[in-house]
Write a protein that binds this DNA or RNA. Structure first.
Lengths: 155, 155
DNA sequence: TCCTCATAGTGAGTCACGCTCACTATCGTA
DNA sequence: TACGATAGTGAGCGTGACTCACTATGAGGA
């Protein structure tokens, strides 16, 4: 099992390098796009989470994003100041607030979804179907391997 | 050309989602690993850059990493304090310093390389060769498309 | 009822990292 | 020599992550 195969190793390393390069490039590109909308990466992540779990107390956002409640306070401060969300009183618990989208916030998230959809078209529309299928199969395999290694999806 | 194909769109979006999920998971995992070595992501990036371009003045590091010279000062401060690099006087220019690996710094980078290689083995060693080939072809296609869209590799 | 413990959120303080602006020291050239 | 360009840093700001201590409120039990 532990016999070393140098050629395979080099091939695996090259494949991993491609994935990591893609990782860096996509991250950079997405963050550039966000700044144009007046959003930071973390605030955008919060909006995305809020869309998924709906209006909720900050505690729930902290749990969903796996960050501290104190950090959520700061992010919500910024999003309130820039008009993407509001803090509404919780009818059930006077200690809690319900973080809620404004119209601007809803529009921003809808815009992000459409941008991502358009980006998907740009990336894949010209790709031969069998190559896309091969890519999807490879990605699924990698994700399954990561899962088996103990890495869990953040969602 | 601009006829909308909803099913294709959904498939493209799903493929992009997979890539972005992989992006997030790999980033998280690598950053977790770094902290164990007493390194932050940015300091690690600097070490990686330094390995690529060799001992050099901070100005060159700033250019290679596309960050400001002032930020490099701070990162090098941290790496000097934790013993990964030293600032050596430049023989050619008394204004400049040469950022240079210590033994600990060299060992840390070698360790990172080996960790990455091992990770590649874990990800791909059990993958059927034709599936790996399909993944590589798909990734190359995506990277080429990104290049055509104007996104450039940071290296 | 009242006391206690748990919970939601925030103030204060810390650290990493990105930035700009102003400054010193040095280089290179006219 | 004198002047403009260059290498690096001090000062200060903004974002975003953390912990710890604190207030206000909720929920039960004695």
């Amino acid at each position: 099992m532990s016999v070393t195969h140098y050629e395979d190793d080099a091939r695996f390393a090259a494949a991993l390098d491609r994935i990591l390069l893609l990782t860096v490039m996509l991250n950079d590109d997405m963050n550039r796009g966000l700044a144009a909308d007046g959003l930071t990466p973390s605030r955008t992540s919060l909006l995305w989470t809020l869309r998924r779990i709906g209006p909720c107390p900050q505690k729930a956002i902290a749990a969903a994003m796996k960050i501290s409640p104190r950090t959520v306070t700061g992010l919500v401060d910024g999003l309130v100041a820039t008009g993407f969300v509001t803090r509404e009183p919780s009818p059930a618990d006077r200690r809690a607030v319900l973080v809620t989208f404004t119209g601007k916030g809803t529009a921003a998230v809808d815009s992000l979804i459409e941008q991502q959809r358009e980006f998907g078209r740009q990336l894949f529309a010209t790709m031969p179907p069998e190559r896309l299928a091969g890519l999807e199969a490879g990605l699924d395999d990698v994700l399954a391997t990561l899962h088996a290694l103990g890495l869990r999806s953040p969602f």
